[in-house]
Simulated scan of single mutants.
Amino acid sequence: MTFTLDRFDLPAFIASTLSEDLSEAGDITSAAVIPADATFAGVMDTRDAVTVAGLPLAEAFFRALDPDVKIELLVRDGDSVPAGTDLIRLTGKARAMLTAERSALNTVQHLTGIATMTRQYVDRIAGTGATLLDTRKTIPGLRALEKYATRMGGATNHRMGLWDAAMIKDNHVAVAGSVGEAVRRAVAAGIERIIVEIDRIDQIEPALAAGATHLLLDNMEPATLRGAVMLVGGRVPTEASGGVRLDTIRAIADTGVTYISVGRLTQSAPAADIGLDFAST
């Protein structure tokens, strides 16, 4: 299976992750305990109800150490499955499978955890018209993968980095002197997408007048959000952000905001309980 993501080097990720585990000495346990010609059949399964993400990466880990491994992906990334579901069936060289096991599981557990939490948030706002966004609150070096996982859970990626849209926040405003002045400078720089964090209702009109193309309504209660959305009147998309939880997101979505961004999707998602059980062939 070919797995590609923009701005993500899969071979380098696989190599560096395995190198972290193997160092110079390699897997001394498998080398000592497992005969070189031994084979194992194994099944990766989930003990939780999950939305799956990361299976092609698990496959890449096993193939990196045993190019001839036989792998059957039993579900696809993005599928929501009940506890007890088998995800991958594989047969290959025992040493290679055992050596790659932890790297493969760590990746699938982490990405599936993100996708699963994301799906819970997406389901909670179903029918409201609001779109769930992720954020840049990702583990350094894993942004492309974590944002892939949020997509598998049904979210839409927000900015991938500092390069693809301006995001004028309170500290930018403090240095520039005002919301309007900060936006004017971004417009003068030729930036097309200019997102502006709004902390107060009275910042809305100056931001729009200066050329903002998207307003981030930060840490506002639903009543305040509803008033802000009415004031904007559809002139630009609106985004609710800050302190959004599963128990509050529905009320936020019902205010009419275009987007809701949730940092905890990548900051706080627990790893899924996924294991790999082997049986001698």
Rank of each mutant, 00 (worst) to 15 (best):
R7G: 03
F13A: 04
A25G: 08
D27N: 12
A36P: 07
D37Q: 15
V43H: 10
M44H: 04
M44V: 14
T46S: 14
D48H: 15
D48S: 07
T51K: 04
V52A: 05
G54D: 05
A58W: 03
A60Y: 02
L65A: 05
V69D: 07
L73K: 09
L74M: 12
R76V: 04
G78R: 00
S80P: 04
P82D: 09
T85V: 12
T85H: 01
T85I: 07
T85A: 11
T85Y: 06
G92A: 12
G92R: 03
K93V: 05
T99L: 07
S103Y: 02
T107M: 10
T107N: 04
T107G: 08
V108S: 01
T112Y: 03
A115H: 13
T116K: 03
M117E: 10
T118I: 05
G129T: 03
T131E: 09
L132Q: 01
L132I: 14
L132Y: 03
L133V: 04
D134A: 14
T135M: 12
K137Y: 09
G141M: 10
A144T: 12
L145H: 03
K147N: 05
Y148M: 05
A149N: 02
T150R: 00
G154Q: 13
N157C: 04
R159H: 13
M160F: 14
G161Y: 08
L162T: 08
W163V: 06
D164C: 14
D170A: 12
N171H: 12
N171P: 08
N171C: 12
V179Q: 00
E181Y: 08
V183L: 05
R184H: 06
V187P: 00
A189S: 12
G190Q: 11
V196Q: 04
E197D: 11
I198L: 14
D199A: 15
D202T: 14
Q203W: 11
Q203M: 15
E205C: 10
A207M: 09
A210C: 06
G211A: 06
A212T: 05
L215R: 00
L215A: 02
L216H: 02
D218R: 12
P222Q: 10
P222C: 11
A223E: 15
L225Y: 04
G227Q: 11
G227I: 07
A228V: 09
A228D: 09
V229Q: 10
G234M: 14
P237N: 13
T238R: 01
A240K: 07
S241V: 10
G242Q: 04
G243P: 05
R245G: 10
L246A: 08
R250S: 01
A251K: 11
A251E: 14
I252A: 00
I252P: 00
I252D: 00
V262F: 06
R264D: 09
R264G: 06
R264S: 13
T266L: 10
T266N: 11
S268N: 14
I274F: 02
G275Y: 10
L276A: 00
A279V: 15
S280I: 13
T281W: 08
